[in-house]
Design a protein around this nucleic acid. Structure first.
Length: 204
DNA sequence: CGCCGGATTCCG
DNA sequence: GGAATCCGGCGA
């Protein structure tokens, strides 16, 4: 289990989005430790990407983290209800990010169920789709991630990503990104990536 | 200052 | 198919 370093994140979002698949996200909070395999990501390529918050060089308080150092967390609220977790990629002032869209719980599963449903294990063991941690909002709810983690350094000891030393081989599928119909030609870019056949992928 | 709408999810 | 529900972003 090797912690991913800044050099890894200091590349374009598409490259990082693909390479994050199969890696483990680790988060520690007052409730304990969570570990989960990343199974679905989306790349947001920054200034030239009409779907990105930083498109056209838009630079506001919310988006500021994307302009900072690579390897930091960008967490924002969506629809007034949910949070989305992103990893900032590329060098300072090149505002790219990777949205984490799906995870497969490995450790801390009871607490994830507690965070999502307010009760224990049974709901997450069910194989129903609604109990999967598929989708950026569900994932943040399961891990207990909110605006407190915005800007957090992923090379620290609280929220970080590690290489998996026991990873089954998989093939990467590419698809259009979800929920960006306003982005004109960018809506057709194949910048969503997922582990082919994994149950925790939001849209197959 | 007011208005518009979103990188979503859940339920009916 | 529609509601939930908040605040970012932009124009006045």
């Amino acid at each position: 289990m090797r912690k991913i370093d800044k050099v890894f994140y200091n590349r374009d979002a598409v490259t990082v989005a693909k390479e994050l698949l199969g890696k483990m996200i680790v988060f520690k909070d007052a409730q304990g430790l969570y570990k989960a395999k990343i199974v679905e990501t989306e790349a947001y390529m920054g200034i030239t990407d009409k779907a990105a918050h930083s498109y056209g060089g838009r630079r506001t308080k919310r988006v500021e983290v994307m302009y900072g150092e690579p390897g930091h967390a960008y967490v924002y609220m969506i629809y007034g209800i949910h949070f989305c977790l992103n990893v900032v990629t590329e060098a300072r002032d090149n505002p790219q990010a990777v949205l984490i869209r799906g995870i497969e719980p490995i450790e801390g599963i009871e607490q994830m169920a507690q965070n999502r449903y307010g009760k224990k294990y049974e709901n997450l063991t069910s194989q129903q789709k609604k109990n999967m941690v598929n989708g950026p909002g569900k994932l943040c709810r399961a891990l207990g991630i909110d605006r407190r983690q915005n800007g957090m350094d992923l090379c620290g000891d609280t929220l970080y990503i590690v290489d998996s030393d026991i990873s089954d081989p998989f093939s990467i599928a590419s698809a259009k990104r979800i929920g960006i119909d306003y982005a004109e030609e960018a809506r057709d870019y194949l910048w969503r990536f997922y582990i082919d056949g994994n149950a925790n992928v939001s849209v197959k």
